[in-house]
Design a binder for these strands. Structure first.
Lengths: 219, 219
DNA sequence: CTTATTGAAACGAACGTAAGTTATTTTCTT
DNA sequence: AAGAAAATAACTTACGTTCGTTTCAATAAG
């Protein structure tokens, strides 16, 4: 697993639900239906990212989030309901992160810089403190069909973002004009996403990975 | 999911347990302990490949293989025992396939041809009739630690094979000498392995994928 | 008091697993 | 060569556990 990049890579970003530890100093009860919900989602994402979908029990999620299974059912009506929201939030988060990063004026206007920025931001989401994005990438294919279907729209929007990037890069000659964008994009994203499966080898930094991917893309 | 390549890609290969369909026209009972074992492994691999590890039940495996759960326990002593053998066979199979393909005299001696052959054979295993290799790649990270540990030796042997290929290619200038082989190999294999997660888009052939990967690797 | 939130307990279903039984094949004895 | 004995292969049934889920009483806030 690669070292976690110093977040704020490329264009500044803070993790989605940047809530602190929930040690409860006095007893900040109530009016926290929002916080509890997010704590559950974060706990679920953390577990899903590590173990996959089916292997994670609601008892584990509840325990990680600091409540009991019964309480969890006050906020969500089923396990499917939990994973549905993890999937939604995770993918929307990563797409918005990349869009925002690309919109940052500090990013160069050349295709190499823009693609590098997008890849780096994508990876920063995967290895950031929040597990939502990583969980989405990791468990998408393990999830019941009725859960993954509604999220396809968001995925298509994300693919469109990359398609636009790659089309520009192809026009400018940064990418080999003989190669098919519809093949290159999933291959490239696959290479990046598969880093989630790397084990051991902590000595490869996210930056090094990004560099290698960009160089390999370059014509 | 890419189209299944016309098997026998690169160097000839037949799927591991090439047993026919088990429709049972008369009633071919008994006399098949070896066949049953392999049928169970094949059924397990098929299910694991599609659904992951934890989501597959022994009842499903037994049903796919055409026997009952109790009978399954005559051949294997636990679910872990089943997945252990799927993992073992799957990975050994893919490594031997690539080694054999590279040893074929019809493969060119230049680094481009050899790397292309290795990638194509790897992918042919992933999308071949037998699911053992695909299951291995897909569920490795979902499996209990005590199962995945003993298989690491085989994985290292496979990595060594690729390291050797890439070192030669780097020496001859086919690969960019500035890039780190220890990063490129997992990235490349990740890109290839992730094709298992592709859904829809049947219109991309394995050959096209191999071509794109090779071209991207080329300096 | 009312509403929102939690925790304890328990439900039925499905899980991995095991034991015991039946059916087929092989081996051994004569 | 025939038939009994042993071994093999598969099925039936069910145990104990754990899962997702539900119920409901207890507690805290407005």
């Amino acid at each position: 697993m690669p070292r976690i990049a110093p977040i704020n890579a490329c264009a500044g970003r803070e993790p989605h639900g940047a809530r602190g530890v929930k040690v409860a100093v006095p007893k900040p009860k109530f009016k926290q239906t929002r916080d509890t919900r997010e704590a559950v989602l974060s706990a679920a994402a953390k577990n899903f990212r590590e173990k996959g979908y089916a292997a994670v029990t609601l008892r584990e999620i509840a325990k990680t989030a600091g409540l009991t299974t019964g309480s969890l059912y006050y906020h969500f009506k089923s396990k499917e309901d939990v994973v549905r929201e993890v999937l939604d939030q995770g993918h929307i988060f990563i797409r918005l992160a990349v869009e925002k990063a690309l919109a940052d004026p500090r990013v160069g206007t050349d295709d190499r810089s823009r693609i590098r920025c997008a890849i780096k931001t994508h990876m920063a989401c995967l290895f950031g403190d929040d597990s939502l994005s990583a969980a989405n990438i990791r468990i998408f294919s393990q999830v019941p069909a009725q859960v993954k279907y509604p999220t396809l729209a968001s995925r298509h929007a994300y693919e469109a973002l990359w398609r636009s990037l790659f089309q520009d890069a192809k026009a400018s000659g940064f990418l080999d004009p003989n190669l098919d964008i519809e093949v290159m994009i999933p291959l490239m994203l696959g290479a990046v996403n598969w880093t989630l499966e790397w084990s051991g080898s902590d000595d490869v930094s996210v930056d090094a990975i990004v560099d290698h991917v960009v160089t390999m893309l370059e014509a």
